[in-house]
Computed example of a mutant assay.
Amino acid sequence: MDLKTLREEKFTSSKFIKLKHYKYEKNGKEYTWDFIESMDSVAILLYHKTKQSFVFVRQFRIPLYDYQKRNNIKLDKNELGYSIELCSGLVDKNLSLEDIAKEECVEELGYMPKSIEKISDFYSGFGSGTSKQSLYFAEIDEDDKISKGGGIDDEEIESVFVKVHEFENFKEKIIRSTTLDFSYLWFMKFKAQKYGL
Rank of each mutant, 00 (worst) to 15 (best):
F126Y: 03
N169D: 15
W33T: 09
K20Y: 07
G196C: 07
F35D: 08
I157H: 02
G125C: 06
E104S: 14
K102E: 00
L6W: 08
K114L: 12
I175D: 03
E37R: 03
N27Q: 15
E107C: 11
L45S: 03
G127F: 10
M39Q: 14
F16A: 11
V42K: 01
S41P: 03
E142F: 08
K20H: 10
V160T: 04
M188R: 07
E166I: 01
I100Y: 06
L135D: 00
Y22C: 10
D92E: 13
K191N: 04
F167T: 01
S159V: 11
I36T: 05
S128I: 14
K148D: 10
G150I: 00
D143R: 14
Y184N: 13
G129P: 04
K118V: 07
T178C: 05
K145V: 03
H21K: 02
I84E: 09
E37M: 01
S183V: 00
V164I: 08
Y31F: 15
N78W: 10
K171I: 15
L109I: 07
I140E: 07
E168N: 15
K163T: 04
I36F: 08
F182H: 06
K163S: 08
K4A: 11
L19M: 11
S120D: 07
V164M: 06
N169C: 08
I174W: 06
N71T: 02
F60Y: 08
L135V: 03
D153P: 10
G125Y: 05
A192C: 08
Y24G: 10
I152W: 06
K51D: 14
I152D: 01
E30K: 14
K15D: 09
Q193T: 15
K49Y: 12
V57W: 12
L46E: 03
Y67K: 05
S96T: 14
S124L: 10
S115A: 03
I174P: 11
T12H: 14
V42T: 05
D76G: 01
L197N: 14
R176S: 15
K148L: 12
D144Q: 05
F190E: 15
G81A: 07
Q52E: 15
H21S: 09
S38R: 15
V164D: 05
E166H: 06
G150R: 00
I146G: 11
K194H: 13
S134R: 09
E9W: 10
D153I: 09
L109T: 04
N78M: 12
P113L: 02
I62D: 13
K4G: 12
E107V: 13
S159K: 15
C87L: 05
E139C: 01
E117C: 05
V55A: 04
K74Y: 10
E79R: 12
K69M: 12
N72I: 12
Y47F: 14
S177N: 08
I17E: 11
N71H: 13
R61P: 08
F167L: 02
I119T: 06
K145M: 00
I44N: 07
G150C: 02
G81F: 05
Y24V: 07
F126W: 01
L3E: 03
Q133G: 13
E156D: 05
G125T: 00
A138W: 00
C105R: 01
E37Y: 06
E142R: 06
Q193Y: 08
K118S: 09
D181H: 12
E158F: 11
V91Y: 02
Q133V: 15
